[in-house]
């Protein structure tokens, strides 16, 4: 049961968006975030929305999946919009009850905020839906590689991420086993108050940590056996090559950006 958790939220596919070079995708996603929060609210939301909807349609990700990714942020959306409604005091008063005053400015801001956050989440989850975690790590390593010159351990960080991703399912499985083993010995994990529940976690976490340390040691030996010696002189089997449609995608993003700036200047 616990094994069914998907890592990240990669949704395998073969659409144009899936096939984009992960480096380009990452940069485009960053540009998209800037786009959403730059300049005039209306303009940026409209450009952002168009951009998001187009790439979403191209990715052929089921709508349901996208809706699911929005579920966890519902409370945040609700909370921010209520705060905006109550505290923004501009424009005409629409509704007044004792000290509560809702103004047209408040409504406007809260609606915009909801749209902005929704677009932000859908856009960025599109990145993780269409890019496998390993490709993403790879892209990060390559994009940050100029930082090696100022002694940032880029390769080591990427390696750590890869190993972490690799061991998530293994450790989940292990946790599952430990929970069963402790339950078989009469451990009570469901009942009791918060403190008792937290205490019940100790007999799960300690064996898990011990085994993780042991695994780490064995893995280190196995890596040494396979001639691992850090990032220096290392080659990669999979080469990332930017193709024509990567540049098209980048071009389209640039056009959107340019449009956004132009409209902002005119207004």
């Amino acid at each position: 049961m616990i094994k069914d958790i998907t890592i990240g939220q990669y949704f395998p596919g073969n659409s144009i968006i899936h096939r984009l070079d992960p480096r380009f995708k990452l940069v485009i996603a960053l540009a998209y975030i800037v786009m959403l929060f730059a300049g005039n609210v209306f303009v940026s939301i409209i450009t952002g929305a168009v951009f998001c909807i187009v790439s979403f349609a191209l990715s052929r990700i089921p709508f349901k999946l996208m809706a699911k990714s929005l579920k966890p942020i519902l409370p945040i959306l609700l909370f921010t919009s209520i705060l905006n409604l109550i505290f923004i005091d501009t424009g005409k008063t629409v509704f007044k009850l004792w000290i509560l005053k809702i103004t047209s400015g408040g409504i406007e801001t809260s609606v915009m905020m909801i749209i902005r956050i929704t677009l932000l989440i859908t856009g960025t989850s599109l990145l993780t839906y269409t890019t496998s975690p390993i490709a993403l790590t790879d892209a990060i390593e390559r994009l940050l590689s100029p930082l090696k010159k100022i002694k940032v351990p880029v390769h080591e960080l990427a390696m750590m991420m890869t190993i972490a991703l690799r061991f998530i399912p293994t450790l989940i499985e292990e946790t599952d086993k430990i929970i069963s083993a402790q339950k078989a010995r009469g451990a009570d994990m469901e009942n009791g108050n918060l403190v008792q529940k937290a205490k019940a976690m100790i007999p799960i976490l300690i064996p898990l940590f011990i085994s993780a340390v042991r695994r780490a040691e064995e893995l280190a030996t196995a890596m040494e056996c396979r001639c691992y010696r850090g990032g220096e002189g290392r080659t990669r089997m999979r080469q990332l090559k930017a193709s024509a449609h990567d540049f098209v995608a980048a071009g389209v993003t640039m056009i959107f950006f340019a449009a956004l700036i132009a409209v902002n200047i005119i207004i």
Binding site: I134, L165, R166, T170, R215, E218, M223
Partner: peptide, 8 residues
């Protein structure tokens, strides 16, 4: 499990 490094 303890000697496989990559996710693919």
């Amino acid at each position: 499990d303890n000697q496989i490094v990559a996710t693919i």
